[in-house]
Design a protein around this nucleic acid. Structure first.
Length: 301
DNA sequence: AGTGTCGCCTGAATGC
DNA sequence: TGCATTCAGGCGACAC
């Protein structure tokens, strides 16, 4: 059994990197579930004092606890333990998880911060160069009221994320729709990449004031957020299998991006003349790159 | 309250 | 060659 990345950030082009958003976290959760669910944690080794927040002392003392299940809330991985606690992981921008089988030799590499060892010898290693990630422990009961979760909006793929809900959240808002759709209090899991992709698919100008969107546009946006995330989850699952086979570079999902990281190029399905239009535009919103097609996404709302 | 900006952090790329 | 600068961004803190 070869060692296996559940997810690793990788370059999209010379400037941009593929960051973990909801689909990538979902892929990590499914991979972790396969490796950990039903197994007992033998030990957790911590290689530093913490990431974005300090590691709680109890985290390093985790031992002889069975993993009941692995689930996801927003971009958080939840490792639910049989003793009523949950190990909460967040990958931040550069976080990744590497699995070592019982026959693999684990040699710590730079930025390995947390190493979880199971009783069957499997190891799950959390590696995060920029250390914007997080690992902590909390009681499973009432987790939804934990400070990390209590302000979060609905899951985008759940029944709570509807056009009626989003329309209500957008009403009266002057902020650009791109920023609002990335606001985790409005809807969770949508980061910089999928915000651009969903707005492109819904043909909405990312600069449009959120409150200016017509009902039809809000409806399209909800549908496309769901569709873009679902496609990415499906692609993550398949490339994970490919990767396990080859142990080479992950092909992953970036070649499927319609606009993200593709400044100056033609957007997917675009018939316009990029000599005239300049192709996909890159602008900065809230300090982050937004990519959009000025033709297809023209007209506010 | 809503909105905008900054800082955390490293690695890769670029500039002198 | 090498050192400094710039850029990427999830999220919390902070200012207005």
């Amino acid at each position: 059994m070869a060692k296996e990345w559940l997810f690793t950030a990788q370059p999209i082009n010379e400037r941009l990197c593929f960051m973990p958003e909801l689909p990538e976290v979902e892929t990590v959760c499914r991979g972790l579930a396969k490796k950990l669910a039903g197994h007992k944690i033998k030990s957790v080794a911590l290689h530093r004092g913490g990431l974005r927040v300090p590691f709680p002392p109890a985290l390093g003392k985790l031992a002889n606890v069975k993993v009941k299940s692995v689930s996801r809330r927003a971009k958080y991985v939840l490792v639910n333990l049989a003793d009523g606690r949950t190990l909460i992981l967040h990958l931040g921008m550069s976080g990744r998880i590497l699995i070592f089988g019982k026959r693999d030799i684990y040699e710590p590499s730079k930025h390995d911060h947390l190493v979880l060892t199971c009783d069957d010898g499997t190891r799950a290693v959390m590696n995060d160069p920029r250390r914007f990630g997080l690992a902590t422990l909390a009681k499973t009961e009432g987790l939804e009221n934990h400070r990390l979760f209590r302000a979060l909006g609905p899951e985008p793929l759940g029944n709570g994320f509807t056009a009626a809900y989003l329309a209500e959240k957008l009403a009266g808002k002057k902020a650009a729709i791109k920023l609002v759709v990335m606001d985790q209090r409005v809807v969770v899991g949508v980061g910089n990449i999928y915000a651009s992709e969903a707005l492109f698919a819904a043909r909405i100008d990312p600069r449009a004031a959120a409150g200016s969107l017509k009902p039809a546009a809000v409806k399209r946006l909800v549908a496309e957020v769901k569709a873009v995330l679902k496609r990415a989850i499906a692609a993550g699952g398949s490339s994970l299998r490919d990767y396990v086979q080859t142990d080479g570079e992950l092909g992953y999902f970036q070649h499927r991006f319609a606009v993200y990281g593709r400044e100056g190029q033609k957007c997917k399905g675009c018939a316009c003349d990029i000599e005239k239009t300049g192709g996909i535009k890159r602008i900065t919103q809230g300090g982050r790159s937004t990519f959009y097609c000025p033709v297809r996404q023209a007209g506010l709302g």
